[in-house]
Design a protein around this nucleic acid. Structure first.
Length: 845
DNA sequence: CTAGGCTTT
DNA sequence: TAAGAAAGCCTAG
């Protein structure tokens, strides 16, 4: 595939490949391909997009250079040793090869386009694509011959194929059709795994077992007289088509296409049939083999939806997916469950066909002379020395034709996001958009009843450069306001970073991740309730997260600057007394005692320190203290809200950006924070961004450290905990101590109230601790935490590093699910030297 | 943890 | 005029 195009320069070729337009998938002639590439180049050249693609391409080239340099340093001896190791591993893998499963991959042909064609007969003979002038989701096979492909902008497609009809997306419809298909699939495997709307994996092993004994009539299907009611217009199919080929209900797709080869006729449909004779012409009986079952599935899909599907049958998902690609459209391919058959198939398969190997990986491997899976196997030693362990392991498995044999139940969701591309907008509009994104996201989030700990802002500038900024907060978020509170800060920081310029964005996105599990949800809810209303048990009244942690606290930069100053003061005083202990080595215990200076030692001498004003409150009740905090906070909250409203106003009415209102606002801010110097420029956007909360810009922000302070929840019980006073503030200094203390940064608040004497549940082990002594209880929690950390450490050390010696002893399971990404990064020097060292040591173990 | 990247539909 | 959205995983720092 993809014989090199002589007319393109290497870089062009690479780029076109990257753009996904040059792999000759639709089977065009070389000449056509050349023309196509030329048109694409002309349409692309000079665009920002193209420039960015070039840049990315150069980055990949750099990576390749790096890897080649590494390669040149590898000695024959190293290769030999690696070879032996890989072979040893290969043998292990071989032993665990499991051919007992029958996996099927079903792939609807040109799905969206096919649906549109089905529903609009006028489109049938035309090249069409689904999407917009800016982006196409898919194209029909007719259009593909012109080089029109998915992920290509429509305006370029139009240049390639002026008669192209572009149909707008109609997601609801596709979802409905997809649902119909899924209903069929579920009959063969109730646990089938859908991948998007048009693909699915099935494990039909069990089904096949049961079907063995099925009587013929259970496998018999009647052929519908083919007329599809399409939007009220019955479409009758050409009779001649049907008498010739009962199963091509979509002559639509392939009528003039040489690919027609795959249309199934009755004789092909059940080669092992005995039944044809007895049944009428308009019925069909399917056999009991996997092939027959898959034919049946495809037949039923077509009968039901009028759309064709391709399928692959194989002993594992990787092979099944590759197989389904083999005879598309409207065809199927099967790899018998024999090692020999598997190897025969894998041998000549280009690595690019392997799911998980994309353009970049392909290019990198190609630079090493690896194109087919056989190359991949032959170069296994080299690969093991050049790529990360995850990568080379997966490469080895690929080259042996191994893949996961069971379909993992779709686990819990890991993240949720929404993003939007737009024409350039002002800073005020950017804030507003961010707000919208957040509330959209919150809707989805609440639909699934999720709360997230990490909020990530994604920005793409007009040069297509992508930036992400994340912040993890202790009090999980779920409402639009809560998410926005975090996202806004991230956005603000970015804006300030370029001030007095504005951000020239073309996309903004918000993502949330780190979802709370059920227990954590309950726990966090409880903590908040306790903080806000100690003594009251009515948690239901608090279910509205309007007042959850993030919301009621001031915003990040305010906290940052404000708390930092206060903390610095305390720290200063603190240092002076404890400088000796903290100077040299300090155990985690020491860190804690140093940091817990404000923690009450026992019930009798409670000293609360307000996290807002930092005043001490001796001998006051927790209720009174919390009331104090509330009042302290209410100022900042008010301010916050005012700002948000202000921002919205700015969005709605730009004329309101008068200098006067700005000045007022700044003055107001100044009153609450005397140290603030608000920058004012003539540019509306800038004054808006720099005065959005009236705080000075934080130069050289490092988000990671900053976001650590973002969350005031370490004050949730009125006391700063270890987390709140990170090593950075206390100048613990030593790296290991920092590591330790940050490791201990488990998102669990401490209990420092003793007003309630009911039993406490350890947040780590979940066991009730019948102690009234908080110090004791906290100690227990510490022990519990340490246990967890130790466990974590041992586990992570096990799975760490390249060629970790442990790994050679363990037999890896065949079922290993390969992730979507191989991301074979060039190994760092350090890693490499470790790598070979381990290699040698391990091997002679 | 954070940031950037790769891959997939 | 015009080059997507959503999600998962990997890796380096």
């Amino acid at each position: 595939m993809g014989s090199p195009n002589k007319s393109s320069t290497p870089s062009q070729e690479g780029l076109l490949l990257r753009m996904g337009l040059n792999d000759n998938k639709a089977g065009m002639q070389g000449l056509d391909k050349e023309k196509i590439n030329k048109v694409i180049m002309e349409a692309s050249k000079g665009s920002k997009f193209y420039e960015h693609e070039l840049k990315k391409d150069q980055q990949v080239n750099k990576r390749i250079e790096k890897i080649l340099k590494l390669k040149s340093k590898i000695t024959d001896q190293q290769i030999m040793k690696a070879q032996l190791q890989m072979d040893k591993l290969a043998i292990e893998l071989e032993q665990s090869r499991d051919l007992s499963c029958t996996t099927v991959h079903i792939d609807m042909d040109a799905f969206y386009a096919a649906v549109e064609m089905r529903d609009n007969p006028e489109l049938r003979d035309k090249p069409i694509a689904v999407g917009s002038l800016s982006m196409l989701s898919t194209s029909n096979y007719h259009a593909r011959r012109f080089g029109v492909r998915a992920a290509m902008p429509g305006f370029i497609a139009k240049k390639l194929c002026p008669h192209l009809t572009i149909v707008p997306l109609n997601f609801k419809k596709y979802q409905e059709v997809s649902k119909e298909v899924r209903e069929i699939l579920a009959e063969y495997d109730p646990h089938f795994m859908p991948m998007g709307l048009d693909e699915a994996y099935l494990n039909i092993t069990e089904y096949l077992e049961g079907r063995k004994n099925w009587p013929e009539d259970k496998r018999k299907y009647f052929i519908k007289p083919h007329s599809f009611a399409v939007n009220g217009n019955p479409v009758t199919c050409d009779k001649s088509q049907w008498s010739r080929d009962a199963h091509t209900s979509s002559p639509v797709l392939f009528d003039d296409d040489p690919v027609h080869k795959q249309t199934v006729d009755l004789s092909v449909l059940h080669p092992d049939d005995h039944q044809q004779s007895t049944s009428q012409i308009n019925s069909v009986v399917f056999g009991i083999s996997a092939e027959e079952v898959v034919k049946e599935i495809r037949f039923r899909i077509e009968e039901r939806t009028g759309l064709t599907a391709s399928a692959g049958i194989a002993p594992n998902t990787m092979l099944a997916k590759m197989s389904s690609d083999q005879n598309k459209p409207n065809g199927q391919f099967s790899i018998p469950p024999e090692r020999e058959a598997v190897m025969k198939f894998i041998k000549d398969s280009p690595i690019r066909k392997v799911p998980g190997i994309g353009k970049v990986t392909e290019k990198m491997l190609k630079a090493l002379g690896i194109v087919t899976c056989m190359d991949l196997y032959q170069q296994r030693a080299l690969i093991s020395l050049l790529f990360s362990e995850t990568s080379w392991r997966s490469f080895l498995e690929i080259s042996l034709g191994l893949g996961s044999t069971h379909l993992e139940r779709d686990g819990e969701r890991k993240s949720m996001s929404t993003e939007r591309t737009f024409n350039e907008i002002s800073a005020a509009e950017q804030y507003r958009l961010c707000q919208d994104l957040c509330s959209d996201l919150a809707e989805d989030l609440q639909r699934e009843g999720l709360k997230a700990r990490t909020v990530t802002l994604k920005l793409k500038n007009v040069n297509f450069e992508v930036k992400t900024r994340a912040s993890t907060v202790l009090s999980a978020v779920s409402t639009g306001e809560e998410i926005f509170a975090v996202a806004k800060e991230l956005l603000k920081i970015e804006m300030e970073g370029v001030a007095p310029q504005t951000l020239h964005l073309r996309l903004m996105g918000v993502r949330v991740s780190g979802f709370l599990n059920e227990e954590e949800k309950k726990y966090q809810q409880k903590s908040i309730v306790h903080f806000l209303e100690p003594g009251k048990q009515d948690s239901s009244s608090r279910l509205s997260p309007r007042k959850s942690g993030e919301e009621i606290f001031p915003k990040a930069s305010e906290r940052e600057s404000f708390f930092n100053k206060k903390r610095a003061t305390i720290q200063q005083a603190n240092k002076e007394t404890s400088i000796n202990e903290s100077s040299s080595k300090q155990s985690p215990q020491d860190v804690k005692s140093a940091t817990s200076i404000e923690q009450p030692k026992d019930n009798d001498h409670q000293i609360f320190i307000c996290p807002v004003c930092f005043k001490e409150h001796r001998d006051s009740s927790l209720e009174a203290f919390n009331r104090h905090i509330d009042s302290c906070l209410s100022e900042t909250v008010e301010k916050d809200n005012a700002e948000i409203t202000n921002g919205s106003k700015l969005w709605e009415n730009k004329t309101d950006l008068s200098l006067e209102s700005q000045t007022n606002k700044c003055q107001k801010d100044k009153t609450s924070e005397p140290h603030v110097e608000v920058q004012r420029t003539d540019k509306v956007n800038n004054s808006f961004s720099s005065s959005i909360d009236g705080f000075p810009q934080l130069k050289d922000n490092k988000y990671s450290s900053q976001s650590r302070y973002n969350c005031p929840d370490d004050f949730i019980f009125g006391m700063p905990t270890q987390q709140g006073v990170s090593s950075k503030l206390l100048s613990v200094g030593k790296e290991e101590n920092y590591e330790q203390s940050s490791r201990t940064e488990i998102k669990l608040p401490r209990f420092s109230t003793t007003t309630e004497t009911k039993s406490l549940v350890c947040p780590v082990c979940n066991l009730e601790q019948n102690t009234k002594d908080l110090a004791l209880f906290n100690k227990h929690v510490d022990v519990c935490l340490n246990k967890g950390i130790i466990k974590e450490l041992t586990e992570s050390s096990k799975s760490m590093g390249n060629l970790d010696r442990e790994q050679y002893g363990t037999n890896s399971t065949t079922g290993t699910k390969r992730s979507g990404t191989m991301a074979p990064q060039s190994t760092s020097k350090k890693a490499k030297s470790n790598n070979s060292k381990c290699t040698i040591e391990t091997f002679f173990r």
